[in-house]
Amino acid sequence: MSSENDKDGQPSGTSAGSSEDSKSLSKEDAKKFYEEKGIDFSPDVPVKPKPIPQFEKSISDRVSSKFGSKVTVDYVRAGRIRVSTKKEDILDVAQFIRDELGYDHAESVSGVDYPDSKEIEVVYHLGSYTDEKLATQVLTLATRVPREEIPNPGKDSSRMTSLREVFYSVEFHERECFEMFGVYFEGHPDNRRLLLPEDWADIPPFRKDFKIKGR
């Protein structure tokens, strides 16, 4: 079913014991079957306009009023706020978020690779233990760093300021992000490999141009 959108176009691994005849039956048949059955094959996400919650709105307003055009508030939902900023400003924004808003730890740091726009997005999910009201809140702080076609981790232009001084808990997350996406974090004391083997010589594996074998 996923074959329809298989972008690399490679044939998927054939199952053991599948005979010659079954290969002639492509996956189009499966699709045809669905169409015959009248099952909608392209469902859309139902768009439900939700009311913007007040408390979250007040937090995002504080961020945007402080930094103005430097930050963009992407969305405000129940319990979730997403703020994106430029990589130059992230340290200031993070410090503001920690000191003024009361978010005190990072839950995760994830990278998202966007090869089309030649950017890697680094997303910090920040939470709070100290502030009782913020317990349900997760603030998503995103920034984008440039992405190079031929990565050279640590030495190319995809680098940004580490937030370890602000949120101590990002230490291992940033190390993971470094090895998986090749984003170098300046100011991180320990930019070493974490999960990958020490002799890993391929490109950072979570980039979109790193293909899993057979897919």
Binding site: D40, F41, D44, V45, R80, R82, V138, T140
Partner: peptide, 15 residues
């Protein structure tokens, strides 16, 4: 569910 559901152009964080 629909057989091969598609997500929208969105992101979500659940814990």
């Amino acid at each position: 569910l629909k057989p091969n559901p598609k997500g929208g152009n969105d992101e979500v964080y659940k814990r």
